[in-house]
Structure formats: structure tokens, C-alpha cells
Design a protein around this nucleic acid. Structure first.
Lengths: 349, 349
DNA sequence: TGGCCGGGAGTAAGCGCTTACAGTAAGCGC
DNA sequence: GCGCTTACTGTAAGCGCTTACTCCCGGCCA
């Protein structure tokens, strides 16, 4: 009723207004201990009248829990990470947690800085993706009692779990699709070399080549850094290298989109002249021209699983399984087609 | 040196270790008051030895500042919002703030729930975009001492500033481009009707039509809800309505991409048969096939400006200007072309 | 009738910091 | 030698909660 005062009401005000002690109010708020119906009623009314909102900072100081988790990632501008955020948010909300977003831009100092900041802020735990901090540091944070779950790399330590798609398998799936269409000269647009997942996808590319008895041509891989621009540039470089290829396996959808653009600009048709396959299966990829053939990652599933595990860790539950490798699947759309009979350029036996 | 104990060292431990009082340690940490060099040294060493990290929760309890801001938005999956997040993050980091991300999925209850949660968490202030809470509620939070700055709508109240692009102008720019190319029958794919920016862009569409002396045909607008799928469906609906059009102005790039897909699938060529223009200028839009003509929004600039204002508000500075309408610009790429001589279908005089 | 039990409530001690307020000692001008 | 700064430091009172401990009282059983 009264005009809002500058300083918000505290639990003392509520207690006084309801004619009980703060302990009773606290018990009611947290639903611990028994409260007589009449008392409960009085407190509820006092809260209503005062417009009281508990100060969770004060609560955290004593309970040592902030109900906050953090998600550290290099670049929110990549829609794949955005999907992860969605998934995390869902689970977090369900369990009453709120999410701090920390973008590191791939800067190792900033990662460390954030990690320390999060500790200082008494954040309950963190999800990390695409980070480059050395595993030992991560393990140390965990040893210090700060739960972490990784979304991209295996910190070989009990108590820091990993949830990710099986990247190598995904890459093989992509390659087998291309190989099955008769492609022999397949280029790869690598992600960001410093990230594990790049190496894993590159590894799958190589394995598939080897399994098909094709010798790898180093001129056929270029770095696209997981972005549209990077994919575009990498493709132009590939084109300029004067080696022929009839297909490109891009490390992610964004760079595949850049690749298609570069190819098209060079007068090459996708998929008639060159097939392109991506990785991620962004929502967007169903709408590119041509719609992108790609490897589907269950982003929301990954995020949910990881967040659930993190919350288990926070609640002191032991996690049984340390590594969750989810299965990627091939999604065939229109950016891939059988290898053309005649290849452009020379160089292929 | 010693094995990390389960409970982290506090300022008392540091004080004891350094042989000073906690007040002195605190003063050194916060750089307030003068400290003798020798004392400073001793404290620094104690901190180092103990691996001490100040507990910001305890600090917040007394200072009443959490150095945390929140960003509320409907959907992080939209790359435009992701760009905003990037911009916010930059400024926030510079000023030592960390960012809580809250996605509301356009659910009004969840918005309110979040707003209350943020208050309870003593968050210093919030940035809001794409929300549907009634303006009075927002104004009330502000009156309660919770700084808010909006990124999309004008809460007519001193003390809740607005930073956004001039949407109506942007829409007019888009339309004038189309009109200038000779298009007369222009469809519009609307955003999400409940959001202000949709109405503003639709308003610009209408104004431009009126200014060109063209009567608006209600059959020419369909709702795309700002997404690829929505744009796709809206376009199919438009196509199915049996009204002719030679151009479509989509409320954002995502729905423009969906539109191009639908058009292409129907055997129409973009831009030869139908021109398409978007709004946002996502990084991606330079790489679509064909590269998208669109209206550029200075996303990072918007985000930075808004965050700076929020921080000013938090620091108790009066903001001089309440509304910042940034200028959109036309970016011509290849998805628009002069209107074809013969239009498909009938219906146009 | 006495002893026990348990529902319901209060007291007060922190949680880990910051910050008025209050010194103390050295330095300085006269 | 005295009083007044100035530079530095300590004491202790909170910040707004939670939570052991205690306590009270009515009911119930033997």
C-alpha cells in the first residue's frame, strides 16, 4: 500500500508485520519445518502487503549455493552454440538455476579470467565448450570443488564429464556419403585447428579416405575456422590451388555455406559440379539454396544431458558415466549428388 | 602449498596469515585508503600462499551491487539477438559486469517470473528485447529501483530508455529500393504481430506503398514470425493465395531466407522472377544464394549503446537522452532486381 | 498424576565481507 | 615541547538470511 521505499523490505520487516520471528518466516519461505496454518496465513499476508522478495544474495551467503551456472563458449554468434544455450536454459530453469553466459572469443586469458570470476561469484558450476585452457587447469578447478562439464573435449579426470557428439563418426558418415556417390577427390574445410573437435572431424576425414584406399592430398584441406567467411576464403584458396576436387566436406554448416557461395561465384554449380556437405544441421541449413546435406547433431539433447549432469554434480551426486558420445546422423538434402563424370581441372589419375 | 581444503580461505585467513586486520586486507583489495608498502607486500604474499579469492557474494551483501546485468530476450537462436549478446558482453566485460541470459520464448509469465527472479538475485539492471510484458509493469520495476533499458519498444516513462534502429525508416528504405526497381506488387512477410518491431516494419511498408500511390492489398501480407520456417510457410501461403507479386519484403533476414527457399521450390527464380529483400543484415546474409539484399542494423552498436546507458543508470547517473533511434542502411546484394516485364499470374492491372 | 513426545515457535550465532569510527605514531611548524 | 596533521591500522557493527538449539505446551500413556 505505502509508497515503495527506496530500501526494500527484509525478512525482519515481514516478521514484525506478521508478529512472528524471522526464523518462522524463513521456515515458511523454504518450506522446512512445520508452521501452524494461522501463522502461515499471517506471514503470507505480511509478504503481500510489503511486497517482500527474499534477498537471494544473503541466502547464498549462508547456504553456499547461488543457483547459478555458467556457460563458457567462444562465440555466441554461431547458431550451433545458440542451440546449446537453448537446451541449457531449459534444464536450468526447470531446476531453478539461472545461467551466466561467458563468451571468450577463443582468448585463453579471458577464459581463465572468467573461470576465476565465476569462482569468486560462487557460481555453482560451469559448462564449457570450445575452450583452450589446458586440461590440468580445468581439473584443478574441479579439484577445488568447482563442478565443470565439458562439451567438446575429454579432460581425463574422474569428475569432469564429457558430453558430445561422436565427431569422428560424424565425419566418417559424411565421407562415406560422398564416397558412396562416387567422389574420390574430396576437399576438407577444417574448423579451428586449436579446437579438439576440428581434429576429430579431420581425423574422421582421414580415416574414411584411408578406408577407401585413397591417399590423402594435403593440398585438399584448408582452414575455415567454422565461419561463413572462413569457409568462403578456404574454398577460394582451394580453387586457387589448382587441384581438382568434386566434393567438399566442411567442418560445419556455416563454413559449408561460405563454400557454396565461393563455388557459385566461381561459376561452379552445387551439386552438379561440386557436392558440399556440412556438419551440425543448423535449422537454417534446410533453407539454404541448395538445401544443405549435413551431419545432424542433437544439440538440444547434448545441452540437456550436460546440464543434467552438471546439476547432479552440484548436488553432490556421483556421476556414473563420464563420457557421453551421442550419435550423429546423416541428413541428405540437395547439396550433394553423384560425382560428375568429367572433372574440372587436371591432377586426378 | 598445502592441499586445498574443502572450504576456501576467507579474508580472515588472509588477515591472520599477513598479521593484519581484515579491514586492511579489504582496503588493499578494493584499493581504498592507504597501505604501507610493507603491509601490502605481506598481504599479497598471504593471498598468494593461500590461493585466496574474495567472495563476491559476501561483498555484494554489503555493497548492494552484484556487478551483474541481465539480458532478457525471446530467442537466442535468432542470430540477430546473438549479435546483440556479443555487443552487450563486450561493454559488460569492460566495466566488470557479468551477464545473465534469460530466454523467455515469448511467454509473458516467464518474463515476469524472470524479472522477479532477477530482483531477488539483486541483479544490477536489465536489458530487455522482444518482450511482451505490459509497459506499466516495466515502469514499475524501474520505479522500484531496478534499472531497465529496452531495445525494442518505448515504455513511455522517464528513466526507461530505448535504443533501437529506426524500423519504420528501414522498412521504407527497403520498399523504396523495390519501388525504385519498378516493383508495384510487393508482398510483406510480417514478423511476430505481438512485437512492436513487427508493427513498425509493417507500418513502414504501408507508408511507402501509400507514398507511391499504391493501394495496399491485404492478401499480400502473411505472417512469418521472424523465422526461416515461418518465412517459408508464409511464402507458400502467399503463393497459394493466387495473387501476383514480383517482390517480397521480409521482416527479417531469416524469414527472407525461408521465402527464397519457398520461391525456388516453386520454380520461381530469385531475383529474376521475384525480388526478395530482408532486414537485419546477418553475417550470414552475405553468403546466401543469391546473396541477400537487406537493411543493415548496427547490432553491435545498438547493444553497446544500450549497455552503456544501463551502466550509467546503475551508477546513478541521469541519462540525458531517452530514445536512441539508430539509422538503418540499405545493403544491395543480388536478391533484388528490376521488376520483370511480364508478371506471373493475373490480378494486376 | 507424572513423564514423554512432538508440533510449533523463538533466540542468537554466524556466512564473508565493508566501512564508520577510533586510535596511534611520526612529522612538522612555532 | 606542544598541538596539529598525516599516514596507516584496528575494532566492531552490520548486510539479510539460515539454522542449530532451546523452549513451551498440550496430549497421551501407564
Amino acid at each position: 500500500m505505502a509508497a515503495r521505499q527506496r530500501t526494500r523490505p527484509t525478512i525482519y520487516d515481514v516478521a514484525r508485520e506478521a508478529g512472528v520471528s524471522t526464523a518462522t518466516v524463513s521456515r515458511m519461505l523454504n518450506d522446512t519445518g512445520q508452521i501452524a496454518p494461522a501463522t502461515r496465513e499471517a506471514i503470507e499476508q505480511a509478504i503481500e502487503r510489503l511486497g517482500y522478495l527474499p534477498n537471494t544474495i544473503a541466502r547464498s551467503l549462508v547456504t553456499k549455493s547461488t543457483q547459478t551456472i555458467a556457460f563458457l563458449l567462444p562465440d555466441i554468434t554461431n547458431p550451433f552454440y545458440a542451440s546449446l544455450v537453448s537446451g541449457i536454459q531449459q534444464v536450468a530453469l526447470e531446476s531453478g538455476h539461472t545461467m551466466l553466459l561467458c563468451t571468450t572469443e577463443g582468448d585463453p586469458e579471458r577464459e581463465l579470467e572468467y573461470l576465476n570470476l565465476l569462482r569468486a561469484k560462487q557460481v555453482d558450476g560451469a559448462l564449457m565448450d570450445g575452450l583452450v585452457v589446458p586440461p590440468e587447469r580445468i581439473a584443478q578447478f574441479v579439484a577445488d570443488g568447482f563442478p565443470i562439464v565439458c562439451l567438446d573435449r575429454d579432460v581425463r579426470s574422474r569428475s569432469v564429464p564429457l558430453v558430445q557428439v561422436d565427431n569422428k563418426l560424424g565425419a566418417r558418415l559424411a565421407m562415406e556419403h560422398l564416397l558412396g556417390l562416387g567422389h574420390r577427390r574430396i576437399a576438407h574445410i577444417e574448423g579451428a585447428p586449436e579446437l579438439r573437435i576440428s581434429a576429430q572431424r579431420l581425423g574422421g576425414y582421414r580415416e574414411a579416405l584411408a578406408a577407401a584406399g585413397i591417399r590423402e592430398d594435403p593440398r585438399l584441406v584448408a582452414t575455415g575456422r567454422f565461419s561463413e567467411d572462413g569457409g568462403y576464403e578456404a574454398t577460394r584458396e582451394l580453387l586457387g590451388r589448382d587441384v581438382s576436387f568434386t566434393a567438399v566436406f566442411a567442418a560445419n554448416d556455416l563454413s559449408a555455406i561460405g563454400a557454396i557461395n565461393a563455388l557459385t561465384q566461381s561459376g561452379l554449380r552445387v551439386p552438379e559440379d561440386v557436392s558440399v556437405i556440412g556438419f551440425d544441421d543448423l535449422r537454417l541449413s534446410a533453407h539454404t539454396i541448395p538445401p544443405l546435406t549435413t551431419i545432424h547433431q542433437p544439440a538440444v539433447e547434448i545441452a540437456r544431458r550436460a546440464t543434467e549432469i552438471l546439476i547432479d554434480l552440484i548436488n553432490g551426486r556421483r556421476v556414473r558415466k563420464l563420457r557421453y558420445l551421442l550419435e550423429p546422423t546423416l541428413v541428405v538434402r540437395s547439396s550433394t549428388a553423384p560425382a560428375p563424370r568429367r572433372r574440372r581441372g587436371r591432377g586426378d589419375p
